[in-house]
Structures are given as structure tokens and as C-alpha cells.
Simulated scan of single mutants.
Amino acid sequence: MPKTIYITRKLPEVIIEKLSSHFQVRMWDQEDVPVPREVLLKEVEDIDGLICLLTEQIDEEVIYKAQNLKVISNVAVGYNNIDVQAAARKGIIVTNTPGVLTETTADLTFALLMAAARRIVYASDYLRSGEWGAWSLMQLTGQDIYGATLGIIGLGRIGEALVKRAKGFDMRVLYYSRTRKPDKEQELGIHYMEMEPLLQHSDFICIMIPYSKEVHHLIGKKELSLMKKNAILINTARGGIVDEDALYQALKNGEIWGAGLDVFEQEPIRVDHPLLSLPNVVTLPHIGSASVKTRMNMAQLAADNVMNVLNGKQPITPVRAES
């Protein structure tokens, strides 16, 4: 009897066809609606492999409902939606999709930085609404990017890729990481700083760290108060790293100049959220890795991880449970 895979959101047809040639495949096929919790709990009872998105909470309840589950394959780099420890206790392998989205996410991060700095979205809306009456000297002025100082919090793959883009704009790059990386400092021409001085000296602060309970609201009222008045905060990592209430107040009161956000504490963010009312914030619906090629590569890697495990091979990109 073929092994069974459940997919929590529709994947590209070519990926489904490949999986279906080897396994029995069941799938929640509504692209814009997450699988209901009760459906997920029922579907996992007899499956061998699970392919899921960040929108699904694969917690202890789900994991212990699954009697035959061998592998959970997350179509994302982050995996804070999965109880990795509970999976490890049951001998279930967890995988993710790092590497394939590095350059695309770095592109989006820098695009968001530029859009926030030069007020691109606001200026476009200004024109389309008919408010543009005449050109004037200080109209819609923004912040310079070329030659500015960029502070990166977290120097992983995407952080390193962002440095290379910043160097094209002759930016001075500072970074903070739990582990200092002298080899990268020499290779990339960047400077290490502790968190507080980095916040104080940077014109742009980009958050590039994975989410965990330890970094929940890492950027809050105190951290925002340390930033320059002309500072712009960019977050393409995870929404929970930033205290959104504190950020709203800092932006509203002019404590910092602007923000660019691709992620939020609750997604989708509600349309009446105060942050969406501010003219100095550029907001996007979590599209950091959203290029056709990258999303295809993510889906392919997630499928390959499942196929490897169910065929008795090693996963390509396993997630290690922390002790």
C-alpha cells in the first residue's frame, strides 16, 4: 500500500504530479484559506508525510494525533509554527527550505528599504489621488540611501546577501549577532556592534533573525527610543520580533522617521490595525520570497525532503531540535 502525504495548501501542479507518482496524496486545495484546525487534526491521523506552510500550527496536539507520521516538511525557512521538540520525541523528522530564497528575500528587503526611504508608495498614492498640483522644492522628500549607515540584526544567509546590495550603495554596514563573525567582517567589510550602539548609529535597521521566544519583542519601546529621529526600521523576518504597539507610537510621535514591514504579529494583519493608518509606513503581505522561481524551488525542496525520508534516505535540509 502506498504511503500517504497530506499537503496543507495547494502546491504547483508539477510538484503534486511528482509526489502522486510515488505516494497517495491528499491536499487542502483552497489557496487563500488556511486548512481548518479540525480538518488538519483529522487528516494527520493516518498519514506518513506532511507538507505544511507557516500558517499551520503543527503543535503537540497535531503531532500526537499523527500515528504514522515520519516527516514534517515546512515550505519556509522559519519553523516556529512547528513544535520541533514534540516531533523529536516521536521520532518525526522536521525539514525546512533554507538557501533557495536567500537572494529573493534580500532583494525584497532592500526594495522595502528604498520604498520606505523615498516614500514611494505614498508618492504614488499622492499622484493617483489627484493631490499633485505643482512641483515644489521640499515636496515628498525622503531619506538618502547612498552613503548611509545600515545596521543589520542577525547575520545569516539573507543578512549577508543584504550586505552585498548595501555595498553597491556605498553604505557603511554594522551588524549585531549573538555570535561575532570576524571572518565575515573581513570578507564583507562590515563592523560588529552590540545592539544598543548599533541602534544609535544606524540610519536603517534591518531585522534578519529567526523568530524564537527569546527574541519576542526584541525591538520595543526602549530600543525604538535609542534610534535616530531619521531612522527607518525594516522587518522582513517575523512580526513577533517587533512590539507593534510601541512601533506605532514611535512612528506616530516622530521618534523614528519610518518603517517598512513585510511581516506582522498576526497574519493577515487586520485592515483597521493602527499601523496601516500611518503615512510613514510601507506595508506588504509577507512576500519576501515571492518570486515565481523561488516559490517553485521552495515547493520542490519541501517535496524532495518528504520523498527522501519516506524512501529511507536522509532529508536534504533537516531542522535540528535544540536540547
Rank of each mutant, 00 (worst) to 15 (best):
G151P: 00
T141V: 06
T55A: 10
L140H: 05
I120H: 01
L108K: 14
W132R: 02
Q67E: 15
I152N: 09
I92E: 11
G91Q: 13
L113D: 11
L155D: 14
D48I: 11
M114P: 12
T102Y: 00
R128I: 06
N80H: 15
I152A: 05
I63K: 04
M138S: 11
T55R: 13
A115G: 15
A115V: 03
T105S: 08
G142I: 02
R118F: 00
T105F: 03
T149I: 10
A86M: 04
I120E: 00
V100S: 12
E61P: 11
V75Q: 15
G142R: 02
D107K: 13
N80Q: 15
W132E: 02
V100W: 07
Y146H: 11
A123K: 07
G130N: 04
I82V: 15
I58T: 08
L127I: 15
N74T: 14
L140N: 07
I93Y: 00
I153E: 10
Q139L: 14
I72M: 02
I152C: 06
V121D: 01
Q57S: 06
S129M: 02
Q57G: 05
I58L: 02
G156W: 05
T97S: 05
A148L: 11
N96A: 04
V62A: 08
E61K: 13
D83L: 15
L112F: 10
G154A: 04
N96E: 03
W135I: 01
L137Q: 14
D59Y: 05
S124Q: 10
G133Y: 00
A106I: 09
D107G: 09
R118G: 05
V62T: 04
G147K: 08
